[in-house]
Design a protein around this nucleic acid. Structure first.
Length: 769
DNA sequence: AACTAGCATGGGG
DNA sequence: ACCCCATGCTAGT
C-alpha cells in the first residue's frame, strides 16, 4: 500500500498542541514523487457504500443536470430573478472504475472543437501525466459517444429525457466507458444553460467522481454590462472551495431518498465569517456560479436549508469592490450558531435535487471526513509530500480525493499537481494519514494554519496576531527540532486525556514538550557544546551541541562523559563561568549579586517562562492545595529548581501555594521581573512628565502670543468649551501624554501586576516585598 | 456607546 | 498587473 504515515502525535501542553512528523517522513514527503504510483494506488477497492453513492450521484446527474444555479425560484423571496444571461457553470462528472481512470477535459457546453482544447493547465497536467503511468488518461475525444446516441450537435440541446434515455441505455454491466455529454440551452425560457459532462464506467465497483467545473469557453457571466469572467479564466474553482462533503453529510442532507445532493462548494469560515457581523464572504466564483445572479448590491433574499431541514433566510448580496464584487451572505449568524460552527470550520453548500434547494451544511474543523480516514490510497495522480507551508491546501486537495470518491480526477481536480509543479512538495493526506490523525490535527490547527491572510492585515489586532503566529511558528520549529524529545521516553506511558475533542498525551513522568534547557557554549577545544544541568544534583554537565536531552536529564544519562555520569562527581563548571555564560552582557552589574545556583535556575526559569508563559499548562486548582511548590512541584518526581514547563508553571491564584516570603525560583524570578518593570515604568513616567512639563511651558508661551480664537470670531465663542477642546484635540500635549504613558507604562504595570498576581499569588494586592 | 452597513485596504495568489 | 478576499475602518443609525 502506498503508505505515508508520519509520526504524529498530539502533544498537549495546555491548550496548545503540536503536530510532529518524523524527519525521515518529512524528507520522504518532500521528495518529489519520482513516478506516479500505479493507478491501482489511486483506485482502492471501492467500498460498497460508494456504489450507492455513485448511483445516487449518477441519478442526480441524470435527473437534473449539474446546473450551477438551479434553485427553484420560489426559494428566494425576491422574485426578481434577473433575466440577464447567466452563464451556468457546467458540472463535470468523471467515473473511474477498476483500474481505469479517465479524465475529461472537454467543456461540452461549447462547440465541439473546444472540447478538444485543453486549458494550459490541463495541458500541463496531461503532459505530466502522459509521461507517467497515466497515459491511459483519455482526452476527451477519445471517449466514446456512440452508445449514448447523442451526437455532438445534440449535445447542445438535449432534454432531461435525453439524459434519462442515455442512462437507461447505458449497459451498466459493460466495462466500456460511455460518455454522455449534454449541454442544454434553454435560452428561450430563462437563458439558463445547462451543461454537463457525464461519464460512466460499467465496471463493478465503480464510483462517480465529480467536481464542479466551470466553463473555459470564454463565455462569461455578465453583470452591469461587464464581463464577469476574470482574467485568469473561470474554468476552475479554487481547490479550497471544492466540496468535500462526506458520505455522512450527504446522507444527512438527502435524508429523503428521492433527493440527491449536488455539492457545490464549501468554504472555511474565516474569523469575520464566523464573527458576530453575520456576513459570510462568498467566494466570488462560487457565488456567481451557484447562486442566483444579482444585478444590484442589495441582492436577493435567499432561502437555504440546513442539514436538519430547517430553512434559513439569508440576504445574498454583493459589495462593489475595486471594479469587482464581493459577494456576501448576510444574516448567517443564527445558522452558523445553530450548526455550532466557528472560524476554521467549514460551511458547505449543496443543492438538493430535484427541488433545487440550496442546502448549507457545516463541518467542524476537528472532524475529518470519514472517508478520508479510511480510504487511503485513492489519491489522484498527485504527488506525495506535504507542503509544509501549505497544509491547508494539501488538505483540501487531498482529502477531497479520498473523500467519498466524488471528485473526478479530471484536470480540474488536480491543483495539487499544479502546486507540485511549483513547490515540488506534495502529498495526499490519505497517503499520509491512514487513521486520519494528521488530517485531524491539521484540521484542528486550521484556524491557525489557515490564517495566512489574516496575517496580512495591518491592524493592531492583526499585528498582534501576526506576532503570535510568528511566535507559534517559531515554537513549532523548535518543537519540530525537538521532536525526538516528544516521543515517549523509553518506558514512559503517557496518560491520554481529551480536551475539546482532541486527544492529548500527558507524560506525567517523561515530562512535557520541551526538552531540557541547555546553554550553548564552546569548550576548550573550540568545539560547540552545550551545558546541561542535572535535574537531581543541579550540576552542569557538558554534552555535545547536538544532543537532545530529555527534560529530566540527570547525570547518569551522561553518555558522553562517563566520568561525570554520577551526581557525586564534581561539576566542571564553576559558578563564575556559569555566570559569565548566563549573563555575558551584565558582567559588570552582575557583580552586585552573587550568582547562585538558585539564580541560574531562576535564569533558566525566566527564559523558559518568557518563551513558554503562554504555553503554560492551564491545569491547576486540582492539586493538593497544601503542597507548596517549594516542597512539591507539579511533577511528583521533580525537585526545586526544575525548569521544566510544568514545574515552571506557577501555582494558580486559587491555591495560595506561595507566600509573600516565598523564595522559590518562580517567585523570586517573578519578583525580580516585576521590580524591573516597575523601575522601568517609573523611569518612563518621569521622562514623560519632564517632557510634558516642558511642552506645556512651550504651549503656554505660544498661546500667549497667538491671538485668541474668540477674538478672531468676535468673542462669539469666548465661553465655549469648544475652545479648549479644539486645542486639546489637536495639539495639547497632555493628550499625547494621556495616551502614550497609558499604552506604555500604564499597561505595563497592570500587566506586570496582573501577571505577577495571577501567576504567583504572592499577595492579593499585587505588591511585592 | 453600541451596533451596523458598506467601503477601503492591502497581502497574497 | 490584476483579482480575490479577509478584515479594518468609519459614517450612519
Amino acid at each position: 500500500m502506498y503508505s505515508f504515515i508520519p509520526y504524529v502525535r498530539t502533544i498537549g501542553c495546555g491548550r496548545y498542541r503540536m503536530l510532529i512528523m518524523c524527519k525521515e517522513e518529512l524528507r520522504f514527503g518532500k521528495t518529489p514523487n519520482p513516478a506516479w504510483p500505479p493507478p491501482s494506488h489511486f483506485l482502492p477497492s471501492q467500498p460498497e457504500r460508494m456504489k450507492d453513492l455513485s448511483v445516487k450521484s449518477w441519478s442526480a446527474i441524470a435527473g437534473s443536470g449539474p446546473v450551477p444555479w438551479r434553485q427553484a425560484p420560489n426559494l428566494f423571496n425576491g422574485s426578481n430573478l434577473q433575466s440577464q444571461v447567466h452563464q451556468r457553470v457546467p458540472f463535470e462528472i468523471g467515473v473511474s472504475g477498476g483500474n481505469d481512470r479517465f479524465r475529461f477535459c472537454g467543456r461540452l457546453s461549447t462547440a465541439s472543437p473546444e472540447m478538444k482544447q485543453e486549458s494550459s493547465y490541463e495541458r500541463l497536467v496531461n503532459e505530466k501525466l502522459r509521461h507517467g503511468p497515466f497515459e491511459r488518461i483519455s482526452s476527451f475525444e477519445t471517449l466514446q459517444y456512440g452508445n449514448a446516441g447523442v451526437n455532438r450537435k445534440e449535445h447542445l440541446h438535449p432534454s432531461v429525457n435525453d439524459f434519462q434515455q442515455i442512462f437507461q441505455k447505458k449497459d451498466s454491466s459493460s466495462s466500456n466507458l460511455s460518455l454522455v455529454t449534454v449541454s442544454s440551452s434553454k435560452a428561450e425560457t430563462d437563458d439558463t444553460q445547462l451543461s454537463a459532462v457525464l461519464s460512466h464506467s460499467g465496471t463493478v465497483g465503480n464510483h462517480v467522481c465529480w467536481h464542479n467545473g466551470m466553463h473555459s469557453s470564454g463565455e462569461a457571466q455578465i453583470h452591469n454590462g461587464k464581463t464577469r469572467g476574470d482574467g485568469r479564466g473561470r474554468n476552475q474553482l479554487l481547490p479550497r472551495y471544492r466540496p468535500q462533503i462526506t458520505n455522512e453529510e450527504l446522507q444527512q442532507i438527502s435524508s429523503d431518498s428521492k433527493s440527491v445532493i449536488t455539492p457545490l462548494f464549501e468554504k472555511m469560515l474565516s474569523a469575520s465569517d464566523a464573527g458576530r457581523i453575520g456576513r459570510l464572504v462568498l467566494p466570488k466564483k462560487c457565488a456567481e456560479a451557484y447562486f442566483p445572479p444579482i444585478a444590484h448590491p442589495e441582492g436577493l433574499p435567499l432561502k437555504v436549508q440546513d442539514v436538519k431541514g430547517k430553512e434559513w433566510l439569508f440576504q445574498y448580496r454583493f459589495w462593489p469592490n475595486n471594479n469587482s464584487r464581493m459577494y456576501v451572505l448576510e444574516g448567517i449568524t443564527p445558522c452558523i450558531q445553530a450548526m455550532q460552527l466557528q472560524a476554521g470550520d467549514v460551511v458547505t453548500f449543496s443543492r438538493l435535487e430535484p427541488e433545487g434547494k440550496l442546502v448549507m451544511g457545516g463541518r467542524k474543523a476537528s472532524v475529518v471526513p470519514s472517508s478520508a480516514q479510511g480510504d487511503e490510497g485513492t489519491a489522484t495522480g498527485r504527488d506525495t509530500s506535504i507542503p509544509k507551508d501549505d497544509i491547508t491546501q494539501s488538505r483540501f486537495g487531498d482529502v477531497m480525493a479520498t473523500n467519498h470518491h466524488m471528485k473526478c480526477k479530471s484536470s480540474q481536480s488536480i491543483p495539487p499537481i499544479n502546486k507540485t509543479a511549483k513547490t515540488d512538495t506534495k502529498s495526499t493526506w490519505s497517503e499520509i494519514d491512514k487513521p486520519g490523525a494528521i488530517a485531524k490535527e491539521i484540521l484542528e490547527a486550521n484556524p491557525v494554519i489557515h490564517s495566512k491572510r489574516k496575517k496580512s492585515s495591518l491592524g493592531a489586532k492583526s499585528k498582534r496576531k501576526k506576532i503570535e503566529d510568528e511566535n507559534m511558528i517559531e515554537l513549532k520549529l523548535t518543537w519540530n527540532e525537538a521532536q525526538r524529545l516528544m516521543r515517549p521516553l523509553g518506558k514512559t506511558v503517557p496518560s491520554v486525556f481529551v480536551v475539546e475533542g482532541c486527544e492529548f498525551e500527558e507524560f506525567e513522568e517523561a515530562g512535557p514538550v520541551i526538552g531540557r534547557p541547555t546553554i550553548q557554549g564552546i569548550d576548550h577545544l573550540g568545539e560547540k557544546i552545550q551545558w546541561v544541568q542535572c535535574e537531581d544534583c543541579f550540576k552542569w554537565r557538558k554534552v555535545p551541541a547536538d544532543a537532545l536531552l530529555p527534560w529530566n536529564w540527570i547525570c547518569s544519562e551522561n553518555l558522553w562523559d562517563v566520568d561525570r555520569s554520577l551526581c557525586s562527581v564534581a561539576g566542571e563548571l564553576a559558578t563564575e563561568q556559569l555566570k559569565d555564560m548566563l549573563f555575558p552582557i551584565n558582567k559588570v552589574s552582575s557583580n552586585k549579586e552573587i550568582m547562585t545556583e538558585q539564580d541560574s535556575n531562576t535564569f533558566v526559569a525566566l527564559e523558559a517562562l518568557d518563551a513558554l508563559a503562554n504555553l503554560a499548562i492551564q491545569g491547576e486548582g486540582d492539586e493538593d492545595p497544601v503542597a507548596s511548590s517549594e516542597t512539591k512541584t507539579k511533577h511528583p518526581r521533580h525537585k526545586i529548581g526544575c525548569s521544566c514547563i510544568v514545574c515552571l508553571q506557577p501555582p494558580s491564584g486559587k491555591n495560595l501555594n506561595h507566600k509573600q516570603s516565598c523564595e522559590c525560583v518562580v517567585c523570586s524570578s517573578l519578583r525580580r521581573r516585576f521590580r524591573t518593570s516597575m523601575e522601568r515604568r517609573e523611569k518612563k513616567q518621569m521622562e514623560k512628565e519632564l517632557e510634558s512639563t516642558s511642552q506645556n511651558l512651550q504651549w503656554k508661551q505660544l498661546t500667549e502670543k497667538v491671538p485668541d480664537i474668540d477674538e478672531l470670531n468676535g468673542g462669539k465663542f469666548s465661553d465655549s468649551p469648544l475652545k479648549g477642546q479644539v486645542i486639546d484635540l489637536n495639539i495639547q500635549p497632555e493628550r499625547e501624554e494621556e495616551s502614550s504613558p497609558t499604552s506604555d507604562s500604564g499597561c505595563l504595570l497592570p500587566d506586570a501586576e496582573g501577571f505577577f498576581r495571577q501567576q504567583t499569588t504572592l499577595g492579593s494586592n499585587g505588591k511585592t516585598d
